[in-house]
Amino acid sequence: MVQYQDRLDLTFAALSDVTRRGVLEQLGGSQASISDLAERFQMTLTGMKKHVSVLEQAGLVVTEKVGRVRTCKLGPRRLEEEAAWIESHRQLWSARFDALDKIVEKLKTQEKTDGHRKRR
């Protein structure tokens, strides 16, 4: 369970940043060097290395150094566990909102009934 939570924490932390999500979208099309990514996102090489490191720790990106160039590509890890976690919480909240809708409808009906009684 702890390992599962650690993975979720790493993944959601990695996805919480707009630049890192942009990097993943970029790498979805093709691999790129850290220098290319830094240029595309208008940031320093050091800043991009930090972002890539976070993505790499989460298993979302894999890097390979060939000579002086470090190339990034999407990692082999899928997001099934994260999707399952989100789905379980979506179902929970959906059930709660459905129950709330029933209460609101009941109160509306009761309000209409009470309104008709007062007019008589």
Rank of each mutant, 00 (worst) to 15 (best):
T71Q: 04
E56Y: 00
R120V: 15
Q91T: 07
H116R: 12
G47H: 04
V61Q: 03
A13Y: 03
A14S: 05
K106W: 10
C72A: 15
F97V: 13
R77H: 09
T109Y: 12
S33G: 12
G22S: 13
A13Q: 07
G59F: 10
M1I: 08
L15N: 03
H116P: 00
M1E: 11
Q57R: 14
A38C: 03
I86L: 14
T63D: 05
T71L: 09
E56C: 02
E111N: 07
T109N: 15
Q26I: 11
Q31T: 07
G67W: 01
Q5K: 11
T44S: 15
S88R: 07
L60N: 02
A99T: 06
K108I: 12
V104T: 06
V18W: 00
F41S: 09
K50G: 01
I34K: 01
T46N: 08
Q5A: 15
F97P: 00
E87P: 00
Q110N: 11
K65Y: 01
G29I: 09
E56R: 02
V62F: 01
S53T: 11
L37M: 12
W85K: 01
V23Y: 03
E111W: 02
V2T: 11
D101F: 08
I103F: 04
K108N: 09
D36G: 05
Q5E: 12
V18A: 13
V61G: 04
A58N: 02
S88I: 04
R68K: 13
L27N: 05
Q91K: 08
K73C: 05
T46A: 15
R21D: 06
A13P: 00
D98P: 00
R117Y: 12
H116I: 15
K118Y: 14
S16D: 12
K65C: 08
R20S: 08
L15G: 09
D36A: 13
Q31P: 01
Q26H: 09
G47W: 03
V54N: 03
S94M: 09
Y4Q: 12
G28R: 07
G47V: 00
E87M: 07
A95M: 05
L37G: 03
